[in-house]
Amino acid sequence: MHVFIAGGTGVLGQRMVPQLVARGHQVTATTRSTARLGELERLGADGVVMDGLDAASVGEAVGRARPDVIVHQMTAISRKADLKHMDRWFATTMRLRTEGTDHLLAAAQATGVPDFVAQSYSSWNGIREGGWVKTEEDPFDPVTGTTAEPVMAALRYLEAAVMRAGGTVLRYGWLYGPGATDELLELARKRMFPLVGRGTGYNSWVHVDDAATATVLAIEQRAKGVFNVVDDEPAPASAWLPALAGAAGEDARSECRSGSRVSSRGRWWPE
């Protein structure tokens, strides 16, 4: 197949390209920077510069490639994490999940691309009703009145648009692995990671390589619908945050164990 990855230099894009190439697929992958074209070529892809927020740029890139499937992996998450102001931290990513999704779907329709796969998220954002185990049928928590509210609204927009187009949505858990947790380690190292209440809120995780493999399988099997892509065992913050702090350093580990940095305003965190 000819696979078009929008966001090829992202954490997941970089793990997907080699897997697809190894399985015999042709890959066209996009970047916003000319300087990163060589990186994509070294991974085995045809690199293309594309602005996901520019409809003309997206239309031209897809029109030239004429792929069999478009994979929407576009994000723009700053390496400087801002957990207190998620709306600011994810500002450009929210636009890529709304405007960028519309541009890619329009280009797919104009070019006759039959399949579309998009990145979504399901680590801590399940509806706070019923049990804590959630399926693909369970909606997101709107987290009304928090800085995460517009972030969740953008995800709902993306999923609805992709489903209307007959595409596939992959709800990845919180990514970990090479390049995926650097900003979290930095927060833990600086003793700035908020621990809410007793840390009983659960998160679902997935390694970047597992997420990439699941995406490759969804492409090859032409899967349709919404799928949660997470590790088998979710974990409460009281378990994974000390482990993260331990990776960041002993001072951060002690801070997490003491519980001295308890946030009473982090309502976006499930508990």
Rank of each mutant, 00 (worst) to 15 (best):
G13Q: 07
S204M: 06
N203M: 12
W240P: 10
A55W: 01
G145D: 11
L175H: 10
H72S: 12
P236L: 11
G130D: 15
H103L: 04
W240Y: 09
G131I: 02
A61P: 04
G126C: 09
G24H: 10
W268E: 06
V216I: 03
R15Q: 15
H103A: 08
D46V: 15
R257D: 15
V229L: 07
T200E: 15
G59Y: 03
A239K: 04
G126W: 14
E99G: 07
T111P: 00
V117A: 06
L37N: 04
T9A: 11
A55C: 02
H103T: 08
A106T: 14
T215N: 10
E220M: 12
A153I: 01
G44S: 04
H103Y: 06
V226G: 11
A235N: 09
L40T: 02
L217G: 03
C256E: 13
G259H: 13
A218G: 07
E186R: 12
T75A: 14
L185C: 01
G201K: 06
G59L: 00
P194N: 04
L184E: 07
L20Q: 10
R36S: 14
A45F: 02
A110I: 03
R198Q: 15
H103I: 03
E183F: 15
M1H: 12
W205N: 04
H103G: 05
G7R: 03
G131Q: 14
D182C: 07
W89L: 07
V262F: 11
A252Q: 09
W269R: 05
L184D: 04
A160Q: 15
W89E: 09
V208R: 12
G131R: 12
P194H: 08
A108M: 01
G166L: 09
I5N: 01
P18E: 05
L105S: 10
R15S: 15
G100W: 08
G59F: 06
R164W: 11
V27G: 07
G10T: 12
D182W: 05
